[in-house]
């Protein structure tokens, strides 16, 4: 089992004819992802990796059933691509673009909430259910990171995901589904919103969140645990614990948080809710063991 995406998910790729789009489409298919159609305006009629390309999402839907859309679209065109996809009633969207204008992200987040859709990203590598399927740009062939297992992993940072996940795998675990919510101040999807899916997924035995300074997403996870929305074991690792106050370090966090958002605040909130917080990446796997999380 996995959440959001598996080998049955029928995926549309926007921006499939671009260099990056074509490269990662090949890898998505190699992993087992069902890529059924592509869209690039004015490139309709071509094929990429054997996938037919259409001019519009509407056109693609005339010929295929589509469950989810993956966007390889430049940051300034992302809002248009997301709205085109939502207009066609596709409710799961992943966008990896780094540099989406803030006001565009506000509009995307708002519109997605109103449509009860899930937009993951931007500024992320996407989402992967190892050995089953992915929407994004993960080097899934690095098997000391992308190994199938029963841990749900959510992250704000690409580089840190590899670092921490490698330590989880080293301890004998693997990921059910790994979701990069991304490093932008307004992510399309927030950590706490994915917790009910991990809770419902029988295969997922625990969740690891990889957080950072800034914003309030980790505090929202603590709230979800307190309210028993999420009851499985949860281990967190947070970067920027010793960052000096007032320095812009790491990804952009929230702008005004009212005294919240420091890593210590997050650690306090998570621990008070009963989650464990690792001090080093190498402790994450050990803490899962300590909690008695089974490896198979």
């Amino acid at each position: 089992m996995s959440i959001v995406i598996d080998q049955k998910t029928r995926v549309l790729i926007q921006g499939i004819t671009g260099k990056e789009g074509a490269y990662w489409t090949e890898h998505m298919i190699a992993l087992g992802t069902q890529v059924v159609a592509g869209v690039t305006p004015n490139k309709g009629g071509q094929t990429v990796c054997g996938v037919p390309v259409y001019n519009t999402v509407k056109d693609a839907l005339k010929h295929h059933s589509i469950d989810a859309a993956m966007l390889f679209v430049p940051p300034r065109l992302t809002k248009d691509a997301v709205f085109e996809t939502l207009a066609s009633n596709i409710k799961t969207i992943v966008t990896i673009a780094d540099g989406i204008p803030l006001h565009d992200m506000i509009a995307i987040r708002h519109h997605a909430l109103a449509q009860q859709a899930t937009v993951i990203g931007g500024n992320t590598s996407g989402i992967i259910s190892p050995e089953l399927a992915m929407m994004g740009s993960f080097p899934h062939w690095i098997d000391r990171v992308y190994k199938k297992g029963n841990i749900g992993i959510m992250t704000r940072s690409g580089s840190l995901t590899n670092e921490v996940t490698a330590m989880v795998v080293k301890q004998g675990y693997g990921a059910s589904t790994l979701i990069g919510v991304g490093g932008d101040p307004v992510p399309g999807t927030r950590f706490a919103e994915m917790l009910p899916l991990y809770e419902a997924d029988e295969e997922t035995k625990a969740v690891v969140i990889i957080g950072e300074l800034g914003g309030t997403m980790e505090e929202e996870v603590a709230d979800a645990i307190k309210q028993k929305i999420f009851t499985k074991p949860l281990v967190a690792f947070l970067g920027g614990r010793t960052a000096p106050k007032g320095q812009k370090m790491g990804h952009a966090g929230a702008i005004i948080t009212g005294g919240k958002g420091s890593v210590q605040d997050k650690i306090d909130a998570l621990e008070a809710a009963g989650a464990l917080v690792a001090k080093k990446p190498s402790q994450v796997g050990l803490l899962l063991e300590q909690l008695g999380v089974p490896k198979h």
Partner: peptide, 10 residues
């Protein structure tokens, strides 16, 4: 990577 760099910093 921002996350990895802040972690190395810690």
């Amino acid at each position: 990577g921002a996350g990895l760099t802040t972690t190395v910093y810690d």
